[in-house]
Design a binder for these strands. Structure first.
Lengths: 231, 231, 231, 231
DNA sequence: GATGAATGAGACTTCATTCAT
DNA sequence: TATGAATGAAGTCTCATTCAT
């Protein structure tokens, strides 16, 4: 074997461990950061704690992320931004009707984002926007606008297919967005805004919301005159 | 007496003003703190700024509140008041149909709560609940449950009058609650997480949401047999 | 006496001490800062050390100066900037001829700046310009330009009085400036650029330089043709 | 042999290149360090930047220099070389008059030293002498004294030829030295402490200074009896 | 009670130096 | 020898809290 090469002797086992670690570092740090940001908020999370949880020193974190802000941005990119292209594609190739599409989207949002730690990021942004305007700008660009665009496309698609009313595209978005944001806040708000009497089941919640969004609570089959607005 | 002391000479006159203010101090501090906590969040609010806005020195604040944390708790406790009896009364005597009632309630909620400082408490609770779990129970009891009860009564009333579908009473609540909570968050800086393209107008937002809640986005005049999905 | 007034009892002695200190703080801090900046340079001076030398804590320093940079600027203003109006006035009212004026100015610059710690600031700026561009801009505006203007006025005055040659006003300045800067550097450069064989005596140095500046080293009473330039 | 080891296979070829470079390493590092120390000062120069510019890793630098401080000392020592013998020779064989000699010397100093990297050492010494007193003696011996001697010989030569006044030999030196040192500082960033209004042209500067040094700024053709001042 | 000067723990970030590979 | 990932001391600055007045 290569026992005649003193370098090679060490190479196989140990070097790999080091290099592995190097490549694993960013991921470990991002995971730790996600945990802590969600758990304690952006301002209250100390970078040293992130580093500790990832098993490295404070300095090492700054080897991979230039600042706390960049660390946060990387967390957002890693956990949220990436999803939108995938989602956009699904939307483009979806074949069902609007009801099915809406049901699918909201369920799938819950599974892929809402139910995961990633949803804590949105909660955090809503809580701590105000400070950190740069992060807001980033989050807007990276998450909010793509998300809103997606919802808008769903609504437009429904209108074009003759399945949905032609509501004001701006305010219509909120009919879909608000329930999701609410669920998100409820989950991370310590339930303080959900009712303690009930353990909110996300799937049932979403089913109920989709039903309302699509068909309303009213029994009347037609929209009354008083509601006949152009938008 | 102390006529030889030029400082004391003024003391009597000044003291009166001071004592009057003295009793007002805690209230002024709480008001200032509410403003700032809502605006900037707990961590980003500096006690000095609170004191300044209340017109006292930083040291004085600590005479009334043992710590920043106690100040926060006092702010929440102070501002959570069950003004629900009034609303309960209105609901009992309301004479219109469910559409009118819902429209009235949401508009009036906006005017009486959403647009006022009081809505800041909800924002605060949703943002900081994780860090102040002791307050959550309090908030639940005083605000969330009475609020949910009210919404539930509205829905039941509609069902009884044959105007609303008989949705699950637990999850139906959220169809009304979610849009209001969303608007609340939006107003308090979570708005920066709304889409920058649009300046959300509360009245239009509410009108749009009521329309959806009542009649849905779907054009189909009838609700399909639930569960009948193709996939 | 005013023994009947409990407030007054303390007022005279103790309060004054505190208030005295408060007013004295900035001065004490500026003095400490000047010492350390001159001794160790801008970058190498730690604000905590400045605070310690002034007998206060780190935090206290920031009560009076918003940043290390502002502290430095205050040191410059305190020790250098102020002198220029005084000097400008002296120049305006000076009655002697150019030789006397130049001799007076350089001697007086030495006494008021060069021989004091303030001169260390200029040494520091020359050493650490490059980094800290904001400080350079400040120093330019606050010190260099007023200084150069002063020298230029001296030369112009001499030309108008028929006492000095009409040299290029830009480069002429350096004939006066260079010797002073050199002396400044020599003094703070650890003498590494002066000759160890000789202890440079500032007064003699200045006398010698003035002589050269005015009359040159050449014995020829007139400027030779080769030197006849328009500037 | 180690043909079974793919890494070793390359080793022989690479090693040759490496060993060749190995001997050049210290020099490359010193050159890079000189550049950066001159440009940014000691404190502001990061060893990593030095290593990068020399094309090696940070760790390698520490193989050759025990610390940043040692690196600095090596830079100074390496670059201080008594090239004064050459100049001494020129001076001995120069045939022109003192004006020509002075003009020649200062121009030639600029070309051979001032305009080159070597001048950075002087800047370095003047800036950092305080922090590296051990280097001062070295610099004195190798640079300052030989330089001063040279200037002194020029002046003596002029006096002997009846071309220059018999000024104090100690202080006369500075009339020649100060302008050069000033230019040196100006060139290396101390220039930012020159007046922003003017882009100092070295050739014009030197011409102007030589003129002043030789003939003074005064129009009076004769030197007044020294000491005769009105005040 | 009221003040506000003073404190000092602690946050983010930098960088000379070390050491396993 | 050479690397570069990792370290941790040190630096600037913030701010809740204290305490002499």
């Amino acid at each position: 074997m290569s026992t005649s090469c003193p370098i090679c002797k060490l190479a196989s086992g140990v070097r790999i461990k080091r290099e592995r670690r190097k490549e694993a570092r960013p991921g470990e740090l991002l995971a730790a950061a996600l945990d802590l940001f969600v758990e304690k908020g952006y301002a209250a999370t100390r970078v040293e704690e992130v580093a500790q949880r990832a098993g490295v020193s404070k300095g090492t974190l700054f080897l991979y992320f230039a600042s706390k802000e960049e660390l946060f941005k990387a967390v957002v990119r890693e956990n949220i931004s990436g999803r939108f292209t995938e989602w956009g594609e699904e939307l483009r190739t979806f074949e069902g009707n609007s009801e099915e599409l809406l049901r699918y989207c909201m369920s799938s949002w819950w599974e892929r984002v809402g139910a995961t730690k990633a949803s804590g990021i949105t909660k955090l942004m809503m809580s701590e926007a105000g400070n950190f305007p740069e992060l807001v700008r980033f989050f807007q660009q990276e998450v909010v606008q793509p998300g809103n665009d997606l919802i808008q496309r769903i609504l437009q698609r429904g209108v074009e297919r003759g399945e949905l009313r032609n509501v004001d595209p701006t305010y219509g978005i909120y009919s879909v967005l608000a329930p999701m944001i609410f669920l998100n806040m409820w989950k991370h708000g310590g339930g303080s805004c959900g009712d303690a009497r009930t353990e909110l089941d996300p799937q049932q919640y979403i089913a109920s919301q989709v039903q309302t969004i699509l068909f309303g609570l009213s029994v009347s089959p037609t929209i009354p005159v008083s509601g006949k607005k152009k938008n």
